[in-house]
Design a protein around this nucleic acid. Structure first.
Lengths: 153, 153
DNA sequence: TATTGTTATACTCTATAACTATA
DNA sequence: TATAGTTATAGAGTATAACAATA
């Protein structure tokens, strides 16, 4: 048995810390979203729909969220049921369905966004603004690396 | 409706990026662990048991992993079934059961650790060593903040 | 009274495969 | 042939509540 390890202890492992911090963030966001009847995945779909003036295809949603398209179908179904988004046929391609936020969807996204953001700010309070920017940039580069790897590896 | 938002777009939100990066890391780690019949949660318990020479209580495992104690019971059950850890009575407190790695558990932790670490290094390849250290430190502070908040908020 | 571990249960999230329709 | 969306299903992860044994 080797005595010295070529890898970090679990609690110093970036993968473990990512999973741990993400768990905290998702739990906090879900708690913040509770009063709107949303969970973080549904909220994420809504946020992307609100951002896209002409709607966003389910394929784009799946790519951006790192989800399988079949999961996106169900999330959009729920948001449609709640009256927060609509599915519209895409003019350019009859296979594609554009997910467009309703007026109510926009309002909910903004109110819920405030609450989620308050939770996030509280969670990151031990980090300076500059450190939060650094963190955001480093995380974005990890995600981008995977995206340009092709798919979601 | 306000025109300007007081919160970031989803794709610039640290919470979202944490969840996205964590998903990639966990998926990669699970793939790396497949040949050992482990998944990342079981592996994490094993890694903590291996690190603790005299074993670690299930309560400590739950706190460190951010899991409910009832989840730890099941993870330890599986590792016991696989012969990678044992439960031993704690000398000092008869309520406590210490989870101790077996020799096989130690060997598997090391071999699996190499594979997981290789995956992590690949995932972080767009970050310099210094940036990886920064990321680790920032994530650790987020987790510590939640811990000192009391429990897992 | 509080803590450690356990059992049970329900719900959410993830992973896959197979299929329709359009391109 | 390939892509966008859909349906179905199984397995893994999460959240709670209630309980026994011990402190």
């Amino acid at each position: 048995m080797e005595k010295y390890m070529n890898f970090p202890e679990l609690t110093d492992d970036v993968g473990f810390l990512l999973s741990r911090a993400s768990g905290l963030a998702v739990r906090g966001a879900n708690a913040a979203l509770g009063e709107y009847g949303l969970r973080v995945r549904q909220y994420s779909v809504l946020a992307l729909a609100v951002r896209a003036p002409d709607g966003i295809s389910q394929r784009e949603l799946a790519d951006t969220l790192g989800l399988d398209p079949s999961q996106v179908v169900l999330l959009v179904d729920e948001l449609v049921g709640a009256g927060l988004v609509e599915r519209r046929p895409a003019p350019s391609d009859r296979r594609t369905r554009l997910v467009v936020a309703t007026g109510e969807g926009e309002r909910v996204r903004h109110r819920a966004g405030e609450r989620v953001w308050a939770d996030t700010r509280h969670r990151l309070r031990a980090l300076s603004d500059a450190e939060q920017d650094t963190l955001r940039e480093l995380l974005a580069r990890i995600v981008d690396t995977a995206d340009s790897d092709g798919g979601n590896r």
